[in-house]
Amino acid sequence: MDEMELSRKANAGDEAAFLALLQTYKEDLLRTALAFLKNDQDALEALQEVTVRAYNKIHTVKEPEYAKTWLIRIMINYCQDQLKRQKRIHHWKTVVDHQGTEDVSQLELKEALASLPEKEQQLIYLKYFQDVKIKDIAKLENIPEGTVKSRLHKTLRTLRVYFEDEGGREHV
């Protein structure tokens, strides 16, 4: 069976065709993941995640001849998300290193978060500790994405002010 036929059958819900299609493009997907993530373990994890995402959305492929492009686009998006997440984690570690010991920084962060109203704490927790996407938070809270973004912006500004005030005070 050729790739076009596999793609059509997978799009129609044939699980065996989907698996065969994925097997056909497995090397291309792994090469793409390795190019971005530069780590075999992360690339394999990316392949697993892309498999799940593609399986859930295979019915959305409009043109069967673009199945490979569609799969690689999912892989690229996933890898870019991972790189952003790693960058954020690296940034937080740098901030912690500059502030002193990690324990003190964690206590300061917990104190700052505790100063926020419960809804704002929840928003920060979902976005930055659980890495939930803004669109998913909007669905969860049943509010528009723009509202989530503006609340997040306001909350981050409040935290910035909190830390600026803390930095300005003399610690005994």
Score class of each variant (00 low, 15 high):
L109T: 12
N142M: 09
H171R: 08
E3M: 03
H59M: 02
K139T: 12
R169W: 05
Q48I: 01
R160C: 05
T101H: 01
R151N: 04
E65H: 08
L29W: 03
T60C: 06
C79T: 08
M4F: 10
G168A: 06
E15I: 03
M1P: 02
D81N: 11
K93A: 09
K62E: 04
V50F: 02
I72Y: 04
D40T: 05
S7P: 13
D28Q: 11
L116M: 10
H91G: 12
K119S: 03
R73C: 11
L152V: 05
F18Q: 06
F18T: 06
T24S: 04
K110G: 04
Q121G: 00
A54P: 02
I124L: 15
T69Q: 09
E65N: 06
V161E: 15
E102C: 01
H171E: 02
Q48K: 06
A54W: 03
L71F: 15
L22E: 00
I124S: 07
K26Q: 14
Q122A: 05
L152S: 12
D136L: 14
E5A: 11
Q86V: 05
L107I: 01
L159Q: 07
A114M: 09
L116V: 08
H91F: 15
C79P: 10
A35S: 08
I76V: 15
I124D: 09
P64T: 04
E166L: 13
T158V: 05
S150M: 12
L34S: 10
D42G: 03
R169G: 04
V50N: 00
G13E: 12
Q99G: 05
A16G: 01
Y125I: 11
V104Y: 09
H153C: 04
E164G: 03
A33F: 14
A46M: 02
S105V: 02
S7T: 11
V161H: 13
L152D: 09
T69V: 04
V50I: 05
H171M: 01
L37T: 11
L44D: 01
F163E: 09
K68R: 15
G167T: 05
Q80W: 13
R88A: 13
I143S: 10
R85G: 11
D131N: 13
R53F: 14
E27V: 09
C79D: 13
E145C: 13
V61R: 01
N56S: 12
M1W: 01
V148A: 15
A10S: 13
R31F: 11
L71Y: 11
Y66M: 05
K135F: 15
Q48A: 05
F36Q: 07
Y25N: 03
Q106Y: 03
F163M: 14
H153L: 06
V95W: 14
A17F: 07
F129C: 15
W70Y: 10
Q48P: 00
T32L: 14
A114V: 03
F129D: 12
K38I: 06
D28A: 11
P64I: 03
I143L: 11
